[in-house]
Simulated assay, not measured.
Amino acid sequence: MSLTFKTLGRGRRVAAGSLIAVTALTLSACQNGTDSASKSSSAAAPATSSANGAPSAGGSAQSAGNGARPSGVAKPSAGSAGVPNASKANPSGMTDPDRCTAANMSLHMGRTDIGAGNIRVPLVFTNKGKKACSLRGFPGVSLIQRDGSSVGTPASREGGAGGSVRLQPGQSAHAVLHTVNEGVSDIPCWKNSQIVFVYPPGSKESMTTGSSGLRVCGGTFTVTTVESGVPS
């Protein structure tokens, strides 16, 4: 009986020892796994921040807070608010090979039409080339001074886009500039302009002509799409 009791007691002690060892190994593995996961998360954090555009170490956060311009963002040029950008002025303008360009056209202001508080002036494009060309869409138009400084903001679009206008050599098309008389609105008038700065529809090259002192009032300055001919 005594021998059997001692053998069983020893077996229980061995089993208990084994259970303790297994538990210790399990706890160690869990702890190591937690540490590894924590280290992996810490290592991955900078990459995630960088991908999201957050400042990296080394003072970038302070630079961003001081209004630093992100890389790849162009610095606005002086007076750009009042002059249309060539790439944005005529997104609906035609890009056909036979499109009329600034190089093969002349530009001038037509006769001013004043009535019922409105002022409308045709902006006339004439094909001065030796072959036919086409125009379609809105020109980009702004008013400037002789020193190049802008007057107000570029003309907004008025009316529908219209169709294509085919110009034989010597033929003309026009778009209409529109503003209102002083006193029609409480919005102050702009100062008098001296030059009309124009991107023909679809063109990245500009043209200019005298504005005849055109003065925009009432905050109204629009341009229509090009139409065939010249108003009488």
Rank of each mutant, 00 (worst) to 15 (best):
T26Q: 13
L27P: 06
S28C: 04
A29R: 05
A29P: 03
A29F: 04
C30V: 15
Q31G: 05
Q31W: 04
N32P: 02
N32D: 03
N32K: 04
N32H: 09
T34Q: 07
T34I: 07
T34W: 01
T34V: 04
D35S: 14
S36C: 03
A37E: 05
A37G: 15
A37M: 12
S38V: 12
K39D: 10
S40N: 12
S40E: 11
S40Y: 14
S41I: 14
S41P: 11
S41F: 13
S42K: 11
S42T: 09
S42Q: 14
A43L: 12
A43E: 07
A43S: 06
A44W: 03
A44C: 02
A44L: 04
P46W: 01
P46R: 00
P46V: 01
P46M: 01
A47D: 05
T48Y: 10
S49C: 06
S49N: 11
S49H: 11
S49Y: 10
S50W: 05
S50G: 13
S50Y: 11
S50L: 13
A51K: 12
A51N: 11
N52C: 09
G53N: 04
A54S: 14
A54F: 12
P55M: 06
P55F: 01
S56G: 13
S56K: 05
S56A: 10
A57T: 07
A57I: 11
A57Y: 08
A57V: 13
G58P: 00
G59T: 02
S60E: 12
S60M: 13
S60R: 12
A61C: 11
A61S: 11
A61P: 08
A61L: 05
Q62S: 10
Q62V: 14
S63L: 13
S63H: 12
A64F: 12
A64S: 14
N66H: 15
N66F: 15
N66Y: 14
N66K: 15
N66A: 15
N66C: 14
G67Q: 03
G67L: 05
G67T: 12
G67K: 03
A68I: 10
R69M: 15
P70D: 05
P70F: 08
S71H: 13
S71Y: 12
S71F: 07
S71R: 15
V73N: 04
V73T: 10
V73P: 06
V73Q: 04
A74E: 00
K75W: 09
P76G: 11
P76F: 03
P76N: 05
P76D: 00
S77R: 13
S77A: 09
S77D: 09
S77G: 09
A78P: 00
A78V: 09
G79C: 04
S80P: 06
S80T: 08
S80H: 08
S80E: 07
A81H: 10
A81Y: 08
G82Y: 06
G82S: 05
G82L: 06
V83C: 07
V83T: 07
V83G: 02
N85E: 02
N85A: 07
S87M: 04
S87Y: 03
K88Q: 08
K88R: 09
K88Y: 07
N90S: 07
P91W: 01
P91I: 04
P91A: 04
S92P: 08
S92N: 12
G93S: 01
M94I: 09
M94W: 07
T95H: 06
T95V: 05
T95G: 06
T95P: 03
